[in-house]
Nucleic acid binder design. Structure first.
Lengths: 148, 148
DNA sequence: ACTGGTGGTTGCATAGTACAACTCGATGCG
DNA sequence: CGCATCGAGTTGTACTATGCAACCACCAGT
């Protein structure tokens, strides 16, 4: 196996390991906001409000899954649904004040956890790593960070 | 926010995005081997056989979860259980031939999918990215952030 | 008005998970 | 030795996330 294969193999293995860990403990750290709920709220904040269908498409989730997640978030008072006056099929979703607050809290906690692992990393490495992740995840080198 | 914060923020977001995507698509890609099953088989291969308790500890899973996963893998003919002659409480788990074969197949497919996203990456970037991931995941045994 | 397409909800099934209670065997202590 | 304790694993129960399919409501084009 050449060096390229070795690097690909390592990347595959490490990404797998990460995904498994994230999944295994997704609910433990932020009992009030699951990983999926967190990313949905994050997307609402970034996008400034969107439709359930947009969330489903963006996250490759079934619309029924999004529907239920959104219902839960609404029950929890973190998002609001507004009827689109232009199209009565559509519900435009947006964060409530409480939603914004919780999202900010969880973001801070998550970022702290990430930063924890990144202590001692030189600034240059942080930036390169961030760049690689963006490039890997998106093909989206163009998209703004956290686009997703 | 300074550049360091921005990089940390991006890393956090991208790792989260990746975890979510992996989770969403884990089952679709390899219907016969879920992400968790895959990692368990992988660990058995690396370790050359271990106990269910070791798997649980390594992956921060409840022993009941591992028990059921292992049962499923055994039913599928991918792992074997052997009584430890030293301690009759213990079952040493190991891959069967079929388990090895499936694991190899899925590894190839997963690696191909990863390589797909890494086409056009210069060798130097591949190696650096792999190194960053190892470093990020590695110190993490204690408090994996995606893990939380 | 009919037809087809889109946004969303609900019923049903499944996977993965945790926690608690349990069994069985090992280990240690009086 | 006999009993208490510990460790490995299993099983019962419950919950969450998820997908698919069926369905309803609405929009738009013909």
């Amino acid at each position: 196996m050449d060096a390229g294969e070795t690097a690909v193999e390592t990347i595959q293995r490490e990404m797998t390991a990460f995904a498994r860990r994230a999944r295994a403990s997704a609910g433990r750290m932020h009992p009030e906001l699951s990983l999926v709920s967190y990313t949905l709220l994050g997307h609402l904040e970034e996008s400034g409000g969107c439709r359930a269908t947009d969330l489903a498409a963006h996250y490759a989730l079934d619309k029924s899954t999004v529907s239920r997640q959104v219902s839960a978030l609404e029950r929890a008072g973190l998002v609001e649904r507004r009827q689109d006056p232009e199209d009565h099929r559509v519900q435009v979703l947006d964060l409530t004040e409480a939603g914004r607050r919780i999202l900010a809290q969880v973001t801070v906690r998550r970022r702290a956890a990430v930063r924890e692992r990144l202590t001692d990393w030189p600034q240059e490495d942080l930036e390169r790593f961030a760049g690689y992740l963006v490039r890997y995840n998106g093909g989206s080198a163009a998209a703004p960070p956290g686009d997703d």
